[in-house]
């Protein structure tokens, strides 16, 4: 990929994520019959937070500030490995899919540790849920990745989701449909959206991600929000590329297709959040096991 593409890749990763949240909120407002906040509201929020002061719990240590920072940096590093549309990733090598998944693991380690650092029962509860649900999401992700490994014969995301993908849809579409469904579940649970977690809720007992960051404030809370948006963007890019596997052969139309895909994905998430309620906490594992099974069926279909 060219230098322009790389620059665009990094620039999009840095600038675009809050826009997704804006689209999601607009969609939800439209469903509710409201005008809703401006599309750029998430950017205004980040700007506002960056100007505020911070309050820290005297219980906390350096781990508390490391949580948001590590989560953001690891997401940024993972973004470099994911192909945005047909243009490939900025960096790719055999096994980058494993680094991709494990970078999120590193981010999760510090996010949960930061929550436990406050000594608050609520934040411990959120951390326990985050750690537990990722235990079930991780096999679902890897089962799906194994389907792609099987189809493409490589373990590099850029090749797995590269030019051959459109052809695989023609041959083994059934498997790929299951992988898409399973990845959407992983996307929703990892980025804490409905039906797993409600980013708008204000009842601490029922939250996952929001309840882990109760004590973060000011610019550091801005880092948390920005990192969460970027995680949605990066995981979303994976789904978008799977659903829109075509290559248009022109750089700008490829990028345009990717942008359309991401906007479509945000609208989709907005629709889900408008028409569905959050699941009860004890039902979440069932859905995640279902996602694992879907991907597993996808693999079984390839065993011939």
């Amino acid at each position: 990929m060219s230098t322009v593409d790389t620059a665009l890749h990094v620039a999009l990763t840095l600038v675009a994520p809050p826009m997704l949240l804006g689209v999601v909120n607009k969609t939800k407002a439209a469903f509710a019959g409201r005008v809703g906040p401006p599309l750029l509201q998430p950017y205004y929020d980040l700007a506002r937070l960056s100007r505020k002061g911070m309050v820290f719990s005297s219980t906390t240590t350096w781990v508390f500030v490391a949580g948001p920072v590590v989560a953001l940096v690891t997401t940024l590093a993972a973004a470099v490995l994911v192909p945005f549309g047909a243009r490939g990733a900025a960096l790719s090598f055999a096994g980058d899919m494993i680094l991709f998944a494990y970078l999120f693991g590193l981010g999760r380690f510090f996010t949960v540790a930061a929550a436990l650092d406050t000594g608050s029962a609520f934040e411990g509860m959120g951390g326990a849920r985050e750690a537990t649900f990722s235990v079930l999401a991780e096999p679902a992700l890897f089962l799906g990745l194994m389907v792609l490994v099987r189809l493409s014969g490589t373990s590099s995301l850029s090749t797995m989701l590269g030019p051959g993908l459109a052809h695989h849809w023609g041959v083994m579409g059934a498997s790929l449909v299951m992988v898409v469904a399973s990845f959407v579940v992983v996307l929703l649970v990892e980025s804490s959206r409905v039906p797993f977690d409600d980013p708008n809720t204000h009842l601490e007992l029922t939250m996952i991600h929001e309840v882990m960051v109760l004590d973060h404030s000011g610019p550091l809370f801005g880092v948390v929000l920005y990192g969460a948006a970027m995680k949605l963007f990066v995981l979303g890019a994976l789904v978008v590329r799977l659903v829109l596997p075509m290559d248009t052969a022109h750089a700008w139309s490829d990028w345009g297709l990717f942008a359309l895909g991401m906007i479509g994905l945000s609208i989709g998430i907005g629709v889900v959040e408008s028409v569905m309620a959050r699941l009860r906490m004890r039902q979440v594992p069932n859905l995640l096991v279902g996602a694992c099974l879907l991907s597993a069926f996808g693999i079984v279909l390839l065993a011939r």
Binding site: V55, S57, T59, F122, D215
Partner: peptide, 13 residues
């Protein structure tokens, strides 16, 4: 930034 900020007990909702 933290060193320069205020310290309070953990906000337990």
């Amino acid at each position: 930034r933290r060193v320069a900020s205020r310290a309070q007990p953990t906000w337990d909702c």
